[in-house]
Amino acid sequence: LETFPLDVLVNTAAEDLPRGVDPSRKENYLSDEDFKAVFGMTRSAFANLPLWKQQNLKKEKGLF
């Protein structure tokens, strides 16, 4: 999966995202380093959170 810089994904409308980016899964296009910096946890820890908590975190970080 291709990764993009944080500033390309945060608070970006679906139509302005790079081609192929799923707007409902912007976090998947962050590098592992950016993911950890944004969410303060690994991808696996994030995946283990309840869906509502994942969505709330994504909203807080501008990735929803």
Rank of each mutant, 00 (worst) to 15 (best):
residue 8 V to H: 07
residue 55 Q to S: 09
residue 63 L to I: 07
residue 36 K to M: 15
residue 37 A to V: 12
residue 12 T to A: 11
residue 48 N to W: 07
residue 49 L to P: 00
residue 8 V to C: 11
residue 52 W to K: 08
residue 16 D to G: 08
residue 63 L to V: 04
residue 59 K to L: 15
residue 42 T to D: 14
residue 19 R to D: 15
residue 14 A to E: 14
residue 53 K to H: 13
residue 48 N to I: 12
residue 43 R to Q: 06
residue 60 E to F: 06
residue 45 A to F: 10
residue 1 L to S: 12
residue 31 S to L: 04
residue 13 A to M: 10
residue 28 N to R: 09
residue 60 E to Q: 11
residue 1 L to N: 13
residue 28 N to F: 11
residue 7 D to A: 13
residue 21 V to P: 03
residue 60 E to Y: 06
residue 29 Y to A: 05
residue 6 L to Q: 03
residue 30 L to M: 06
residue 21 V to C: 04
residue 51 L to S: 09
residue 11 N to R: 09
residue 62 G to P: 01
residue 52 W to N: 08
residue 13 A to D: 09
residue 31 S to C: 07
residue 39 F to K: 00
residue 9 L to E: 02
residue 38 V to K: 01
residue 10 V to F: 06
residue 29 Y to P: 01
residue 47 A to Y: 14
residue 54 Q to W: 00
residue 24 S to I: 07
residue 47 A to V: 10
residue 8 V to S: 08
residue 40 G to L: 09
residue 26 K to I: 15
residue 60 E to K: 10
residue 29 Y to C: 05
residue 33 E to Y: 10
residue 6 L to A: 06
residue 2 E to A: 13
residue 26 K to W: 05
residue 50 P to G: 03
residue 57 L to A: 05
residue 20 G to C: 10
residue 45 A to Q: 13
residue 51 L to R: 10
residue 46 F to S: 00
residue 62 G to L: 05
residue 36 K to D: 12
residue 4 F to P: 02
residue 9 L to P: 02
residue 17 L to N: 04
residue 23 P to L: 07
residue 20 G to W: 13
residue 59 K to G: 05
residue 11 N to I: 05
residue 64 F to L: 15
residue 59 K to E: 09
residue 33 E to F: 11
residue 54 Q to P: 00
residue 2 E to Q: 14
residue 63 L to Y: 05
residue 5 P to E: 06
residue 1 L to Y: 15
residue 49 L to Q: 05
residue 29 Y to G: 02
residue 37 A to I: 13
residue 36 K to L: 15
residue 19 R to V: 15
residue 16 D to F: 09
residue 60 E to C: 09
residue 46 F to H: 00
residue 53 K to V: 14
residue 11 N to D: 08
residue 64 F to C: 15
residue 2 E to Y: 08
residue 48 N to E: 14
residue 49 L to H: 01
residue 48 N to T: 13
residue 51 L to E: 09
residue 24 S to V: 08
residue 28 N to S: 10
residue 22 D to Q: 04
residue 59 K to V: 12
residue 62 G to K: 06
residue 19 R to G: 12
residue 18 P to A: 03
residue 2 E to H: 12
residue 19 R to F: 15
residue 1 L to T: 13
residue 47 A to L: 12
residue 12 T to R: 09
residue 50 P to Y: 01
residue 8 V to L: 15
residue 30 L to D: 01
residue 16 D to Y: 07
residue 8 V to F: 15
residue 19 R to M: 14
residue 8 V to M: 15
residue 51 L to T: 10
residue 62 G to I: 01
residue 5 P to M: 04
residue 4 F to Q: 04
residue 13 A to F: 07
residue 21 V to N: 02
residue 49 L to W: 04
residue 5 P to R: 03
residue 52 W to R: 08
residue 51 L to N: 09
residue 57 L to Q: 02
residue 14 A to D: 15
residue 53 K to L: 14
residue 41 M to V: 05
residue 5 P to Y: 03
residue 30 L to V: 04
residue 20 G to L: 07
residue 25 R to W: 08
residue 1 L to V: 13
residue 43 R to C: 03
residue 14 A to K: 11
residue 15 E to D: 11
residue 54 Q to E: 00
residue 32 D to P: 08
residue 1 L to G: 12
residue 8 V to I: 12
residue 2 E to C: 15
residue 60 E to M: 11
residue 34 D to R: 01
residue 4 F to M: 06
residue 36 K to G: 10
residue 37 A to S: 13
residue 30 L to F: 02
residue 4 F to R: 02
residue 22 D to F: 03
residue 32 D to S: 07
residue 22 D to N: 08
residue 63 L to G: 02
residue 34 D to L: 04
residue 63 L to F: 09
residue 56 N to G: 10
residue 27 E to Y: 02
residue 63 L to P: 02
residue 42 T to Y: 05
residue 29 Y to E: 03
residue 62 G to A: 03
residue 47 A to N: 12
residue 48 N to R: 14
residue 58 K to P: 00
residue 54 Q to F: 00
residue 53 K to N: 10
residue 25 R to Q: 10
residue 30 L to Y: 01
residue 53 K to T: 13
residue 28 N to E: 14
residue 51 L to V: 12
residue 5 P to Q: 05
residue 3 T to H: 11
residue 38 V to S: 05
residue 42 T to W: 04
residue 15 E to G: 11
residue 29 Y to R: 02
residue 25 R to V: 08
residue 35 F to K: 00
residue 43 R to D: 00
residue 10 V to W: 05
residue 11 N to S: 10
residue 34 D to A: 06
residue 49 L to S: 02
residue 9 L to C: 04
residue 47 A to K: 12
residue 29 Y to M: 03
residue 39 F to M: 07
residue 10 V to M: 14
residue 42 T to E: 13
residue 11 N to A: 08
residue 57 L to M: 12
residue 32 D to H: 07
residue 44 S to K: 13
residue 21 V to R: 02
residue 41 M to S: 01
residue 61 K to S: 08
residue 25 R to S: 08
residue 48 N to V: 12
residue 43 R to N: 01
residue 13 A to Q: 11
